[in-house]
Design a protein around this nucleic acid. Structure first.
Lengths: 214, 214, 214, 214
DNA sequence: CATGAATGAGCATTCATTCAT
DNA sequence: AATGAATGAATGCTCATTCAT
């Protein structure tokens, strides 16, 4: 029931994009790019240090001049992804004060992160568990903060009777879950723009929350 | 924004459960069980044939008396998962004729598959891409059939003006996506029963579809 | 300088032929046939017990009802080959009393063994060394007897001044060596009959021995 | 009828010798040496990468820093062997213009290659078929060129009525075959020098060709 | 006689990582 | 910063052989 047509690849997107400003320059940045492409396609355990190095055009030993281990490369990607999500959600939340507008902004931001950086989102969501606890901890804190933002908005909307939903936490899981999945099917082969998807999903979120319909 | 509290594990569930009647007997079935546990926790590439064999209590070479390769073990799991989903959705669809009731039944079935067999669902959804095309093909056909069931119900509901949504396909991706994610957080550590989750999610789906609210 | 055109296969012939009367009946005989084909093509170490069993159409365990080990199958082939050679050479020697006629008969028999049973000859010559000493011993005795037959004929011819050659042993190695190589290139793809090859090689042997030319 | 006394070993020689100047330096060269010894004794399939590495004194993984596969090690040996043969035959041919002298030089060179590098000759002749076609192709071309050199000399000798033989191609197979076999029995345990063997075999070749005897 | 399941040892190869240069 | 060589451990898988049925 993952809707757009089923190909065996893990995601539909191809372009390897990282948020601006956060990618380190030079070889270190190229390592990050190529690792992202491979981790997204084949997963952390399915990707070898040699495969990354080969795509970068360096010797695999050289990678260790830039990162202390294969896991640290993933950790940096996972952290970049979570930081970008957290920053966007924080900014979205600040644009409005009313829960309905905040929920809209939050979901739009969440979805657009997944349309703008689908590879990063897939890696951030699906490969985090491959990291040892001490490397995933910073990302997990950000993830928790993001989760609380959504729950807070839903709670305030409920308290103000702007929202009406059977269960707050379940609504949050539903809204979060549908957004995360976008990274897997969004890509150049389907007809929607990022704004269309984000807008529709924000609309769905309002409906899930039981917001008064305009 | 994956809501219940963040631990580094890939899913919250622990019990290894497979649908009744489809698990082969004897050693072959035990291999399937232990492989499911490991594939769910560490992924296909993160799981070694020796790790599976060791949990089963057999020599790793013995595994090859039952499956021709590591990938065939995954292929059987993935196929079982898709078959169970397809069977449940088909049965759900048959219980009613009206789109709203059908959508409710469909989403309840979809969600309950993810609460009843969370490990299988995670493997089915996340590890399918590790298979060579010829091994994933049967599952992909079933997946496509499931996708069409959901789209058909939404389409008929729209045509009968029972549903009202901005875009049919996007609604389907949202409904499907939120259900798939359930496998990751549902487990013994959270307070909801399978019926509560299924009921709430069916409710959310109706709202996403813009169904007339009672 | 192995003359007919160079293909990567080990020998040109294809038909799997064993001497009449010596092949055991039933499954045991079929094992011998298929083992011969595989040992000739890929060598003892390059052939697995399962490959033999698969060609025979039996389970690999069944092979052990007929032979105590993989090496014993080879040992039987090697012994059959040496027995056939020894029998033919003995018969050839008995047909005449004069050294020149004896040498002719001996070389014709030697060459024809290699044209009649090229696979067996290749296995007999090239795979014997893969056997443990106790399994190869009976064949080695026969091989030694064959060697002595040739040397004796050459010696008697020399003593009677029918032959005239720089060195007896070296002549024997040359005559033996050229005959052994026949198994590698003789086959249906080249224009000579077994009689033509045998006749020419016998002629060459007489010349090597420095026999009076008719 | 392989004449010098029968031991179960594949060849009588022990010293591992490779042509000067062509062996790569350092670890790569040592790998080549030890692989030659083992391939000659036990064949390609009977030799493990670990056995080679152990004789070299390196970890088996280190071998892959020098050769991409076990087959590539054999391919290099087989190519060295064929190159050396081709070079020696070419040089031999150039020393004289008359067919009889050319045949003598050719056979002396052929035989001496087998006395000087018996292990290499055995591997070159007997293990080539274990290579995939693309790895054996360069050697097969050289082998073909060598074959044509011998045939050309025999043909010119026949045309000039210096040689007189029943069949050109069969004479070539005989001359080539007897030379190849030398690698198997020549060694420290027998009384002939390389020059004695080469001289006698050249003499035999002239007789096979039916050359006018001085 | 034949089998399917089982095994311990071994296979070629790849792994992430280290280190001297 | 970058490399080629090196390594110990591990990879998926095949080996010849055994054994209960």
């Amino acid at each position: 029931m993952d809707v757009p047509a089923g190909e065996p690849r893990r995601l539909a997107a191809v372009a390897v994009v990282l948020p601006e400003g956060v990618t380190p320059p030079g070889t270190r940045g190229r390592i990050l790019h190529e690792a992202l492409a491979l981790y997204a396609e084949s997963g952390f355990h399915g990707t070898s240090i040699r495969a990354i190095a080969s795509r970068v055009g360096i010797n695999s030993a050289t990678l260790y001049s830039h990162y202390p281990s294969k896991a640290h490369v993933l950790a940096e990607l996972v952290l970049i992804g979570h930081r970008e999500l957290h920053a966007r959600l924080t900014a979205a939340l600040a644009t409005h004060a009313a829960p309905a507008e905040q929920l809209t902004a939050l979901v739009r931001a969440h979805v657009q992160l997944h349309t703008d950086f689908p590879l990063l989102a897939v890696v951030t969501d699906s490969e985090l568990h491959a990291l040892p606890a001490e490397l995933s901890a910073p990302a997990l804190e950000l993830r928790d903060a993001c989760r609380r933002m959504l729950l807070d908005v839903l709670r305030r909307g409920s308290e103000q009777s702007v929202f009406r939903m059977p269960d707050l936490v379940l609504a949050a899981t539903a809204i979060g879950g549908m957004g995360m999945r976008v990274a897997h099917w969004f890509g150049p082969d389907q007809p929607y723009t990022r704004e269309q998807v984000a807008g529709s999903y924000a609309h769905f979120a309002l409906r899930i929350a039981g917001a008064e319909q305009p």
